[in-house]
């Protein structure tokens, strides 16, 4: 699809996603979104699939190692040569993930960055390696959220950590989205935002399901045991963790 009028019609047909963390469900279903995106050319649909594959948790989960994710991301970035902003966006997303992966590795007791080029991507590898024990990897001046993420991670507040990471990703999407209104980049950025909103809404759904389960168990076993569930059972379930979530 190259006609700008078609992009205008497509972009205006997509509902506003709203402010992150405020919606309990996505304003457009996956089925309906795919239906609307059907007007894209096969080449653009391929670009979109590839971008989602390397940026969304569900797409990354099928890879068995960080190295294969990074290798795939490099291929996708090379394929997006016609769209420099999307290249920067995917690269920025990989860098954000690298920083989160570094925080997790350090929390798990890793004393040095090790072979960071095998599990990390982007401009900050040298900073991370040289400042491994610094809370913000020596990047606090550029990226103040890292130290905050470190604090959340150490305190075990995974929900706050996830919110912070998603906010950072959303900020990157907003930054590049401001330059595109009715073009392929605008559509791609919308889809990436939709993936994040949809992911957060699933957390809420999982949360609700867990709470319902606890309530059902309480009701079913109340007469037998007369005991309450441990506090941990009623806590908000943690979001899926991984080096590339």
């Amino acid at each position: 699809m190259s006609n700008p009028h078609q992009y205008i019609a497509l972009v205006t047909s997509l509902p506003h996603l709203g402010v992150l963390f405020t919606r309990k469900e996505v304003p457009i279903s996956q089925f309906r979104l795919k239906q609307r995106l059907g007007v894209l050319s096969p080449g653009h649909q391929k670009h979109l699939r590839e971008m989602v594959e390397v940026t969304a948790w569900a797409g990354v989960a099928k890879y068995d190692s960080d190295a294969s994710v990074i290798s795939r991301a490099r291929e996708v970035i090379a394929d997006l040569a016609e769209y420099p902003d999307l290249q920067h966006l995917v690269a920025a997303r990989m860098e954000t993930r690298t920083l989160i992966a570094a925080l997790r590795r350090r929390r798990e007791g890793q004393e040095t960055a090790g072979r960071i080029s095998e599990w990390g991507y982007g401009r900050w590898l040298a900073f991370i390696k040289d400042n491994w024990m610094d809370p913000g990897f020596g990047l606090s001046h550029f990226l103040p959220w890292i130290a905050e993420a470190d604090r959340f991670m150490r305190s075990g507040d995974h929900i706050a950590m996830e919110r912070l990471a998603l906010t950072e990703v959303m900020r990157e999407l907003d930054h590049y989205g401001n330059h595109h209104e009715f073009d392929f980049e605008a559509v791609a950025i919308y889809v990436l935002r939709w993936v994040i909103v949809e992911r957060w809404s699933r957390y809420n759904e999982a949360d609700a399901r867990e709470r319902l389960q606890v309530l059902l168990e309480d009701a079913l076993h109340a007469n037998d045991t007369h005991t309450t569930h441990p506090a941990s059972m009623s806590e908000t379930p943690l979001p899926s963790e991984g080096a590339y979530s």
Binding site: H5, Q6, I8, A9, V11, T12, S13, P15
Partner: peptide
């Protein structure tokens, strides 16, 4: 009109 009309058609879908 084509630009505005395209936007209007898209908006009507939503």
């Amino acid at each position: 009109c084509a630009l505005g009309g395209s936007a209007a058609i898209g908006a009507m879908l939503d």
